[in-house]
């Protein structure tokens, strides 16, 4: 993947995340009215295809976006170059994806 494709992937993942962030915060503010419990949250999310798709796509976008951004920081700030930098960034991206996927599965299955 070229620098340009990474650039586009980072911009497009940001575009995907923007509405998700707003909905995520909006629902949080709405949901905590009158207290918050695990049962209430799980009642909303468990078995919901909508929330599975919503947070599933959110996790994918975050993993792509963060890994590309950290790759730049690793190069400019930590002086990491070439393949080593790509490997570290890919591991971070896959790690975020795994953690996120686990969380999404836990609240929607």
């Amino acid at each position: 993947m070229s620098e340009f494709h990474l650039y586009m992937a980072q911009r497009l993942s940001a575009l995907v995340m923007a509405p998700f962030v707003l909905v995520h915060i909006g629902v949080m503010i709405y949901a905590i009215q009158g207290g918050l419990s695990a049962a209430e949250i799980l009642g909303r999310t468990q078995g919901s295809v909508f929330w599975f798709a919503f947070y599933g796509m959110f996790v994918v976008a975050v993993s792509i976006h963060a890994a590309i951004g950290l790759r730049t920081i690793l190069g400019e700030w930590a002086g990491l170059r070439g393949g080593a930098r790509d490997v570290v960034a890919a591991v971070i991206g896959l790690g975020l994806m795994a953690l996120g996927a686990q969380a999404v599965w836990a609240v929607t299955s």
Binding site: S2, E3, F4, L6, Y7, T72
Partner: peptide, 9 residues
């Protein structure tokens, strides 16, 4: 300008 070190940096 799209290659390595180009404008997107």
């Amino acid at each position: 300008v799209s290659a390595k070190g180009g404008c997107h940096s």
